[in-house]
Design a protein around this nucleic acid. Structure first.
Length: 428
RNA sequence: GGAGGCGUCGCCUAGUCCGGUCUAUGGCGCCCGCCUGCUAAGCGGGUUUGGGGCUACAACCCCAUCGAGGGUUCAAAUCCCUCCGCCUCCGCCA
């Protein structure tokens, strides 16, 4: 939810923001009308309610006819109060609905336009030239099979399409990545968290995922619970209904959780392998800080993401995502896209968003600054999404014989293993 | 899953049976002031959050807020219903 004051005092700014995302500004006028009606209704209700309270105080002392008269009077007033309250509630709901439907106001620096209008900020490392090395790179599906690391057939058998088993070195690789990511996070001062992957509607809605992204969310039948698509969801709701100590900010969390995505609307895209799956595990950075500090913190999150990719010796680029592709909550988003050799493309591995006060206003998280209660900003950033990172590592560091070189930083977490070697037989 | 208990303005707590003088008691902590070489003690005052009015986004006034939401009533912390959370015991389980 955006700051209601901006909507009231500078509606043109909101109209411009809607345009930048390619959305209608109709809702702005609806919101302003609802606000005017809401204030009128509040005035009406509160006036009547105050009168009712005054009269009510006289009743216990009154006697006989006087008392009967008062009772009759307050009885009609009570009905009016009830009606006025209903009107106020309705106006309030209209105002809230309008406010909740507005996405966050994209940053001035965010490029205008849709999915293809991103700006490349930086390219790091050089994609390997397999032609020059004299061999055709294998894709991660083939490598996963050779190494006994990824079992897609059995994933499909047991759970359906877009599922997999990580086996042997594949499973070890995930544990190693988790440990490496958590180690980096801990050294940077993050608090490590293992978060619940099932949440109530409040958490899902508060983070903006029941809006335009609702189709992508799994709902548990028979219970009022959702499977999270990222631990951003439980971590944003972690401090809901709390007033934090402003002096303790920033609060930095590195949260591990499985992530579940229906991938509705992506039929036909990335149908093979583990690039796009219904479930994967992820270590996510999540930060609570002040709005003023959020812009600098966003850069820090990006820097930590790059540090992690650097440690895996991957080639990647950083893009500034365009306004139309931001999602409800973010004002700005940077994606780090790693080079995937067999696709000849950069693919998103990590993503960091500055959500400013959008989520905390919905989830009622604030902080006390020198005695004053004020807003808090949230940011999130991927430290390591297991499946895509495994794809990038296998494809990038593969060797002609089908083995895969282990990046230095990862070796201590794999018991010193320097090369993943093809296994015979069992893989199937 | 079954049975029972509980949820009060940072923390603890009075009030809930028998609805109205509860503008919610007291203590601790915290803040301001007084006093005192300093500190401590003592004394006085203040201390939930959200919204509205008026405005300088001050002061002030008003409304809501006793886990949440409904209901009964002229009137609800107090009575009724639903939900949420916590605790104890039993069952089951990792």
């Amino acid at each position: 939810m955006i700051d209601p004051r901006i909507l009231r005092e500078d509606p043109d700014r909101v109209r411009a923001a809607q345009a930048k995302r390619g959305l209608s500004d109709e809702v702005v006028d609806q919101a302003l009308a609802a606000d005017a009606e809401r204030r009128r209704a509040i005035l009406d209700f509160e006036g009547k309610r105050a009168e009712q309270k005054q009269l009510g105080k006289l009743i216990p002392q009154a006697q006989g006819d006087e008392k009967q008269a008062l009772l009759a009077q307050t009885k009609t007033l009570a009905a009016e109060v009830k009606a006025a309250e209903a009107a106020q509630t309705a106006a309030d709901e209209a105002w809230n609905a309008a406010l909740l439907s507005l996405p966050n106001l994209a940053s001035e620096e965010t490029p205008e336009g849709g999915e293809d209008d991103f700006v490349v900020l930086e390219t790091v490392g050089t994609p390997r030239d397999f032609a020059a090395e004299g061999f055709e790179p294998r894709d991660h599906i083939e490598l996963g099979k050779l190494l006994g690391a990824i079992d897609l057939d059995r994933g499909a058998k047991v759970s359906g399409s877009r599922f997999y088993f990580l086996t042997g070195v594949g499973a070890q690789l995930e544990f190693a990545l988790i440990n490496l990511a958590m180690e980096q996070a801990r050294n940077a001062g993050f608090t490590q968290v293992i978060a619940p992957a099932l949440v109530r509607p409040r958490a899902m809605d508060g983070t903006g995922f029941l809006g335009q992204a609702a189709d992508d969310v799994y709902k548990i039948e028979g219970d009022d619970l959702y499977l999270v698509g990222t631990s951003e969801v439980p971590m944003a709701a972690y401090h809901s209904d709390e007033i934090l100590d402003g002096a303790a900010l920033p609060l930095r969390y590195a949260s591990f959780s499985p992530c579940f995505r229906k991938e509705a609307g992506s039929h036909g895209k990335d149908t093979k392998g583990i690039i796009r799956v219904h479930w994967f595990d992820k270590v996510e950075m999540f930060v609570y800080t002040t709005t003023e500090d959020s812009y600098a913190e966003h850069q820090r999150l990006l820097a930590w993401e790059k540090e992690f990719l650097d440690s895996l010796e991957l080639a990647y680029r950083v893009i500034d995502v365009a306004a139309g592709d931001l999602g409800l909550s973010a004002i700005r988003k940077f994606d780090c896209e790693a080079w995937i050799p067999t696709q000849g493309k950069y693919r998103e591995l990590t993503s960091t968003s500055n959500c400013t006060e959008f989520q905390t206003r919905r989830l009622d998280t604030r902080a006390r600054y020198d005695g004053q209660v004020g807003p808090v900003a949230t940011l999130n950033g991927t430290l390591c999404a297991m499946t895509r990172t495994i794809v990038a590592i296998l494809e990038t560091h593969q060797q002609a014989d089908g083995s895969v070189r282990v990046p230095k930083a990862l070796q201590p977490h794999l018991g010193g293993l320097e090369v993943l070697k093809p296994v015979g037989g069992l893989g199937g």
